[in-house]
Amino acid sequence: MRNIIEIEKVAKFYGDFAALTDIDLNITEGEVVCVIGPSGSGKSTLIRCINLLETYAEGGTIRVDGIPVEAGPNLDQVRAEVGMVFQSFNLFPHMSVLKNVMLAPMRVRKSSSKDAEAKALDLLKRVGISEQADKFPGQLSGGQQQRVAIARALAMEPRVLLFDEPTSALDPEMVGEVLDVMRTLAGTGVTMIVVTHEMGFARQVADRVILMNGGQIVEAGTPEQIFDAPKEERTRDFLSAVLNH
């Protein structure tokens, strides 16, 4: 399997504080990777570097499908291949649900509005929102909004999907519906990197689980390796803290 994402020696500093240090990570096409770890461990910062919502320090490189992720003419192309789902949905509140999903394909891929609409309706059906296509984001529940956000990201037919704590802002009863959509997606062969606190989801869906702490990757492995036989002390500490409550 070829690498769709190659991260080499990536670091990020806020003044003197090292948010990320010396990250090396390759992700193969179609892989589902869950990134876990305590708050402030650099999980979100790491995936936000992959589409350059955060810059990273000189000396490191990130490549998506061989294209370096850096400011410049290639950046929009990289971003078009990398979809992102945010903790706070970030839907466009002044557009209908349908228009939210149609916008980027029309502007970036130059799809006709007919094609974009057909695809958007199809995607909204896949995430179970087709009834709400003409509503505005403010009229939907959090879980519905997040599913629209997933459809919006999928409309660009990205090679990679980044999820930045997609269920952390949701009421508990809505977490399931969003995770269900993500679970279905994981079966379709799209590469997914999911920053999450949902250990059950990570164990069940991930091909690989990465544990971060203090801006570093502490341990990476299959869900069985990480959850059942963690090698590192810090992994054991974190897991016992999140699993035994």
């Binding site: 589409n51 929009d76 192309q77 945010f86 839907l91 916008l103 956000a149």
Partner: peptide, 10 residues
């Protein structure tokens, strides 16, 4: 802004 940029909008 982040959502727009993440979608690749110019």
């Amino acid at each position: 802004f982040e959502a727009s940029r993440a979608l690749g909008l110019s």
